[in-house]
Design a protein around this nucleic acid. Structure first.
Lengths: 128, 128
DNA sequence: GAAATTGTATAGCAGTAGCATACAATTTAT
DNA sequence: ATAAATTGTATGCTACTGCTATACAATTTC
């Protein structure tokens, strides 16, 4: 699949997978009704245990983004629910911005920093 | 002190403390040479174990932001080293922005989202 | 209805966070 | 000097978490 696990990333694997799928849903690459890969297949692709993927699926199900059914698999949920993916994506941004505000940075300083980081990100993205 | 631990925060306590002190240094509230509170005092203030604070201090020392000495305490390091606090502050922002980029959001969308979140943050900050 | 496919539950191991308590270095007061 | 107080450090323990291997259960396919 279209997901990468990075062992330098401090997030646990199951969360990296969940975040990755959430991003795919929020970005429109995975639309309502689309079937997700079986836990065994995705686990094999990423070289991890099937339970690790199952945990990621359960996390997404708890958020209402997918529907998981025993025997038939996982499916992207209704587009009504998908709107929440945007909200989920905002959370880490909010946390990061809160830290900067608490550090005493002014709004303009923060916006400048964001623009700067964004420029660097969009300029030279890592090639898988 | 001027630091809060939030049990709803997923970060471990020692990291919340380290992040908090780092923010104070980066924001200029704690300047070079200033003495940090003894581990026991800060631990008592926050209602945690002294080793938890000691771990936070060690993390900051590893980053070169403070100097810890057995018997005399912890002191904010040279302003040369302090410049790195800015870099440490940027890291979570960078992670959050990377997620948004991977989700397929355009630069302008992200900037808009940031401005929006920032407005909400600066408008109604939580009062202690 | 048997076989294949898919998710779920259980059990175990390793690492981490936090705590209580004891130890060691430095400073302060005698 | 040296005893006492202050400060950081080390040890040992418990609970929890992330990950794995393996067994179990539901659904679909033939």
């Amino acid at each position: 699949m279209f997901i990468v696990v990075d062992e330098n990333d401090s997030r646990p694997i199951y969360r990296q997978v969940a975040d990755g799928i959430r991003a795919l849903i929020a970005g429109g690459e995975l639309r309502e009704g689309v079937q997700l890969p079986p836990v065994r297949q995705l686990a094999a692709d990423l070289g991890v245990n099937l339970n690790t993927i199952a945990t990621a699926y359960r996390e997404l199900q708890a958020e209402g983004l997918i529907t998981v059914r025993h025997g038939s698999g996982a499916v992207v949920a209704s587009s009504r629910a998908i709107e929440r993916a945007d909200e989920e994506l905002r959370r880490p941004l909010r946390t990061a911005l809160t830290q900067l505000v608490l550090a005493g940075l002014a709004r303009t300083e923060i916006m400048g920093m964001v623009a700067e980081e964004l420029r660097a990100l969009l300029k030279g993205p890592k090639r898988g």
